[in-house]
Design a protein around this nucleic acid. Structure first.
Lengths: 348, 348
DNA sequence: TTGAAAGCGCTACCAA
DNA sequence: TTGGTAGCGCTTTCAA
């Protein structure tokens, strides 16, 4: 299949008015023979005023006849606030665990009647991104990773955001923090390997840019686990492809390592296969442990040991956001929410 | 880690005014000692009017001093149109291939300066969803799967959407269609298995609801490939868990099948492992083919045959949307964009 | 070169 | 029970 990009010049038609104009509440009012106020009351089921049943019917019929749909922007302009929760769209393909989690969060927010806007901040740096987000006047902003600083938070709050929640490793001034410190993931893995008698431990660090947010803390965690012991930690940069893994496997004996924490289960699968293809036995010659506890780890032979990651239910985060929105004065909450536990199987 | 849901009553503080009000262009004008019109000209670099350099500076300084950020809703209300492209958020966790693709599309749209809004339409049916989307007055709507009908398209167009693009298997009246027919994926797999001498073919149909959009056509494609031959097709419902796969493997000999198309590579890995654990040889006793050409297939032993899926670059789809937006009068385009080719490895 | 003012669609107040 | 109307923040004529 071939795709040819076609550049079309700005059409002259684009500046002409729409063929048929979009119906407004005024149109509905006209058709129903009432005022715009009445239309608003009826369609919003405003309990404050009593409208006679015949009038209500006329209004509703007029609305559906015209195919009237209220204009969210106008409404929130008038109301002075929106129900928009903004989340920056991940710039790079992040693992299945995380993207699944974001989906869950999305759903939970939707159930609380928020509109989730994923804003791609490609190419925007720091406060620039925050300013772009602020233009949408979101009532809340959820920022994964280390995508915002205190100035960014200030910009958002000044623009009316009632809650800023970070999902990263470090708290940010002025924002609620759900601390998801991947350091503990690495620590778990390192401690486990050490307890299993391994002393010379390699740690895979993906070359894919943008994964640093996760991979650096995971590496640091292993370092901490081995600190003050007779164990050593060796950093192993690795691309997510077979050649890269084969090269690592070829160097393996020279490296003198006896175990590897492979960043996550997908990288672990890659590494384990390369090691096995190079004639090394897992776990005898090399213990391998992954992270994220994906299904595929259970299907490998030997079965892959991994670090299971416990994240708060999307519902919980959504509730935190909702609470913060309804009570913007409250002091920023700050809590660690990432649980890491080793799942010991056969590869270590 | 335990999470306790806390219900907080509506705070009385929530109805009190914001502690400090959000600066508007009027505030900037006041501080700079000019009119709001001038502020607008300066901040939008309007070429139509000439503003003296000193004035420009004063305005810009005032804006940054106040931390002024324009209000997108007000702007698009005035302009009569937005730059919002709406995409329904996938209700169920969809495969890595697809979610990666949506991300790519998202990025490409962002580069064209559109704001992507992912709207979770959980619980909304048909036109209800379309109406909810229409409230945001998106300039374009991209609907994956079979999430909209002709009436939905009409609702959106009537509300000002200049382009509706479907990404599903069937074209919808009034909308542009990028036909991604997974039937051809199944057809590919079926034809390949038949050519390799297999005659009694099982097709895995995931039990996970919401995957039907993909799995049904894939099944139908296999049926078509085998139609009029001496081959047979057997539907194999399967949950994404080891027990379910083990049950299938236990039934395998009784089923009398000699090959299986496993929906995608992840299910294929699950099935292949279960078959091997049950003492069956792949491909001798059972040929296994997946789909989506994920990395993991290359890492299995035997290496997994698969159907590689070719999707148009995100950039291409974004350009189509952009073209449609700028030229709303044009007839709906309609083209098949899903390429499927077998990658023959060792499992078939 | 700048300012005054209209108006986008909507809701909420106050009057009738 | 209903209508008139102000005004949310912004851009864009038209006048000065």
């Amino acid at each position: 299949m071939r795709y040819v990009m076609v550049q079309i010049p700005e059409s002259t038609a684009s500046s002409s008015p729409a063929p048929h104009s979009v119906p407004t509440s005024a149109d509905v009012a006209r058709l129903a023979g009432v005022s715009r106020a009445t239309v608003s009351y009826v369609l919003n089921n405003s309990g404050a005023v009593r409208i006679s049943e015949p009038t209500r019917r006329r209004v509703r019929e007029a609305a559906s006849e015209l195919g009237y749909v209220p204009h969210a922007a106008a409404r929130s302009l008038r109301a002075g606030h929106s129900r928009i929760v903004l989340m920056p769209a991940p710039a790079i393909p992040v693992g299945p665990l995380y993207s699944h989690y974001l989906n869950e969060l999305h759903g939970a927010l939707g159930r609380l009647d928020y509109t989730v806007v994923q804003h791609g901040s490609a190419g925007l740096h720091g406060d620039e991104a925050a300013r772009a987000w602020a233009e949408l006047r979101p009532v809340a902003v959820i920022v994964p990773g280390a995508g915002i600083g205190p100035e960014g938070v200030a910009v958002l709050k000044r623009s009316g955001a009632r809650a800023v929640v970070t999902l990263g490793p470090d708290p940010v001034d002025g924002a609620h923090a759900l601390l998801m410190d991947h350091e503990s993931v690495g620590h778990c893995a390192g401690a486990h390997l050490y307890a299993r008698g391994r002393r010379r431990i390699g740690v895979v660090v993906p070359e894919e840019r943008g994964l640093d947010v996760f991979s650096r803390p995971r590496l640091a965690g292993v370092r901490r686990a081995l600190h003050g012991t007779d164990g050593t930690v060796t950093e192993l940069p690795l691309g997510y492809d077979e050649e890269s893994a084969a090269r690592l496997a070829a160097r393996w004996r020279g490296l003198g390592l006896d175990a590897v924490f492979a960043y996550n289960d997908e990288y672990a699968m890659l590494v384990m296969r390369a090691l096995q293809d190079a004639g090394l036995r897992v776990p005898e010659d090399a213990a391998v442990i992954g992270a994220d506890d994906l299904m595929l780890g259970r299907l490998l032979r030997p079965r892959l040991s991994t670090v299971h990651i416990d994240l708060p239910p999307g519902r919980y985060v959504a509730d935190l956001v909702d609470r913060a929105v309804r009570n913007p004065g409250a002091a920023p909450e700050r809590q660690a929410v990432l649980g890491a536990t080793v799942v010991h199987r056969e590869s270590t």
